[in-house]
């Protein structure tokens, strides 16, 4: 039997031997078609248009303008900082909630709470923004309560300030952050936590030495998904952020709508994309380094007597 197998393989027709490759192509095709048609080709077209001026001549002037302009670099820095802050705060808030949900709630109430967490996630973004606006505007419920407690003036509001934008972005990031951290928390074996505790580890030590190493990969996933979405925020700063809450997304939109150079808007978008990828990569590397450092560094190579001369 063993001797006949290679002979049978050798005798396969070219069509039959192409079967597995065609099968793989068939499985990959739907995803690849979508990826190529809706992501790769548009991205190529966008990159090319970023290198064109208004007379369709090839030039790097658009990128030079972005990278040498203090205005847009300042706006880029502010945008990255706001996105980083709001993503980090959302994860910090979501993590304890996710741990509590995974460890300390009954299955019935967990389903209800997860359902409530998902509602804002599937609600129209504009509806959420305008709902938040109605909540915090002067004369709105928050202002009404605080002014009746004599804590603020009746017309005081954080609306049209950078803080309104930051709060909204944290709020928008929370559902995804909770869901991802819930998944991470649920995958940690309860007996591991119990073992750490019975060995006398304090809660903070359990978190640092057990929970963090087992969840850090999901923290990176969480950061990546929320940061990338937040960094391109346009509606939130435009509607809530006021004159001092500008982000780069607004500048890109304004650039496109005013009829100034389209290529420059593309250059702004691509610089934002690359800067975002750098931040995400840096965070992933940092978390990976922390994990390795916590584990005592990379395992030492076993030095054999033969190499130890």
């Amino acid at each position: 039997m063993a001797a006949t197998a290679p002979h049978r393989r050798a005798g396969r027709s070219p069509l039959r031997s192409a079967g597995p490759a065609l099968g793989r192509a068939g499985l990959l095709a739907p995803g690849l078609i979508l990826l190529v048609a809706l992501a790769f080709l548009p991205l190529v077209a966008i990159v090319i248009s970023g290198f064109l001026n208004d007379r369709s001549q090839f030039t790097a002037a658009n990128f030079a303008h972005v990278l040498t302009s203090g205005i847009y670099l300042k706006l880029l820095g502010r945008t990255l900082a706001v996105a980083f802050l709001t993503t980090a705060v959302a994860i910090a808030l979501a993590w304890p909630a996710a741990l509590a949900l995974a460890r300390h709630t009954s299955p019935g109430s967990r389903t209800v709470i997860l359902g409530l967490v998902i509602i804002p996630y599937i609600t129209s973004q504009l509806l959420l923004i305008y709902g938040f606006l109605s909540l915090i505007q002067a004369g709105g419920p928050v202002s009404f309560v605080l002014s009746h407690l004599h804590l603020v003036d009746a017309h005081a509001s954080i609306l049209y300030t950078p803080w309104a934008n930051i709060l909204m972005l944290i709020y928008e990031n929370l559902p995804a952050a909770i869901l991802i951290m819930y998944s991470a928390s649920e995958s940690i074996d309860a007996s591991v936590l119990e073992a750490a505790r019975t060995l006398g580890a304090r809660p903070w030590y359990v978190f640092l030495r057990v929970v963090w190493p087992l969840s850090s990969a999901m923290v990176v996933v969480n950061f990546t998904l929320n940061f990338v979405q937040t960094v391109g925020a346009f509606a939130e700063p435009a509607i809530l952020g006021g004159p001092n809450g500008q982000m780069l997304g607004i500048a890109i939109q304004a650039q496109l709508s005013t009829g100034a150079s389209q290529g420059f808007a593309v250059a702004l978008s691509l610089v934002l994309l690359v800067a975002s990828l750098v931040v995400v990569g840096a965070v992933a590397l940092l978390v990976s380094w922390m994990r390795r450092a916590q584990a005592g560094g990379t395992p030492r190579r076993i030095v054999t007597p033969a190499t130890e001369v």
Binding site: S17, A18, A21, L22, R24, A25, L28, A29, L32, I33, V36, A37, L41
Partner: peptide, 22 residues
């Protein structure tokens, strides 16, 4: 190399389909 050819052919087929869709 035949496997690679298959993959390359698949990628070209996907790209061509995408171009047609667009």
């Amino acid at each position: 190399s035949r496997g690679r050819r298959g993959k390359v052919a698949a990628v070209f087929a996907v790209a061509a389909a995408a171009a047609l869709i667009l």
